[in-house]
């Protein structure tokens, strides 16, 4: 087998493995959200299918696959069918860069963080396409809101990560983890890092279109927003993408602020395979935080959403970068 063919085969195998793992992981996230929501809402949540309802979302996915695909007659068929793939592919692509442990990372490219931000903002094209092609006014309003929202909050996501890049001096994710062996970045950068983390979580929640920033779906205003006209598996793609995106935001935060697969104070350094466990624990803690937002806060209004970004988060971020630069310059970081 020639070398290129071998490389291509390797990539395909990795892709299939990732696809398999993360479809299931996405379904598990959906299940987790439902149980968490139930817990917040004095309910039990799904607990009949499988042990404690673990297979509930599998059953739901099966139902969605077997459902008839309906759509509007006057929809732009090509774009209408294309939209869900944009969304799901862009979110699956980002997964390839996440460093789950030292050896479990599909691609480790030197522009890692930049690539992550870039790829995760492709998804909005899918949403815009879906909303436009559905030929439904509610979908269109939802899609427009999504466009406005993602473009605005992209800035904060990028800038808050940039603040942390000042500390590491590299965009490559494995190097960022390496730097954190001397203390997680949220400790190294202390005050500006904590501010950057808070901004990142707010902007990240907004970018995944989750409550309290779910203007895009806003079920009490727009019915279901951009995916009103989607059914069956195409709807499932949008749905799954939302949860994978949530996972990605939490995973980026884990990598950049909380030392990825590194154990706290190196307590399990001798057992490198535990790295993935640590990574998942940190990520799910952050995912839980995002669920907590969703089930306690009311939704913002569209103009308040933009006010929050342009009048508060963006100026805070810009000042924060300068502060961080000063700290790095004066070597005021905390390192062990």
């Amino acid at each position: 087998m020639p070398e290129t063919a071998a490389q291509i085969t390797e990539m395909i195998i990795i892709a299939i493995i990732y696809l398999g793992i993360f479809s299931v992981a996405g379904l598990f996230l959906v299940f987790m959200e439902r149980r968490v929501a139930a817990w917040f809402q004095l309910r039990i949540g799904p607990n009949r299918v499988g042990y404690q309802g673990l297979l509930q979302t599998m059953a739901d996915a099966l139902k969605l696959v077997s459902k008839e695909l309906t759509g509007t007659v006057k929809a732009d068929k090509f774009l209408y069918n294309l939209a869900p793939y944009f969304v799901i592919i862009s979110s699956l692509m980002a997964l390839g860069l996440i460093p789950f442990s030292k050896s479990f990372q599909a691609f480790d490219i030197n522009i890692g963080i930049f690539f992550l931000i870039a790829v995760s903002s492709i998804g909005v094209i899918g949403i815009l396409l879906g909303g436009w092609a559905s030929n439904n006014k509610y979908s269109l309003i939802g899609a427009m809101r999504s466009g406005v929202q993602t473009i605005s909050y992209e800035l904060s996501v990028g800038l808050s990560l940039l603040t942390m890049v000042l500390l590491t001096g590299s965009l490559q994710l494995s190097e960022m983890v390496e730097v954190q062996k001397h203390g997680w970045l949220i400790l190294q950068g202390h005050i500006p890092a904590v501010i950057a983390f808070m901004v990142f979580m707010i902007a990240g929640t907004a970018e995944t279109n989750r409550a309290p920033f779910d203007m895009v779906e806003a079920e009490s205003e727009l019915g279901a927003g951009f995916h009103t006209e989607y059914s069956g598996m195409k709807f499932a793609y949008f749905f799954l993408a939302e949860f994978i995106n949530m996972f990605i935001i939490a995973a980026i935060a884990t990598t950049v602020f909380f030392g990825a697969w590194l154990s706290p104070f190196g307590i399990t350094e001798s057992l490198p395979w535990l790295g993935i466990i640590w990574f998942l624990i940190k990520t799910f803690a952050l995912v839980f935080l995002m669920m907590w937002f969703r089930w306690t806060f009311p939704r913002l209004r569209v103009d308040q959403l933009l006010t929050l970004e342009w009048k508060y988060l963006l100026p805070i971020n810009l000042v924060n970068i300068v502060v961080m630069a000063l700290i790095v310059w004066q070597k005021l970081t905390i390192q062990f």
């Binding site: 309910r43 806003a218 089930w295």
Partner: peptide, 16 residues
């Protein structure tokens, strides 16, 4: 009211 402004949890508290 809570549900309409996007806070779904209130619905269940009210119903309890």
């Amino acid at each position: 009211m809570g549900m309409d402004v996007g806070a779904l949890t209130t619905y269940f508290y009210g119903f309890r």
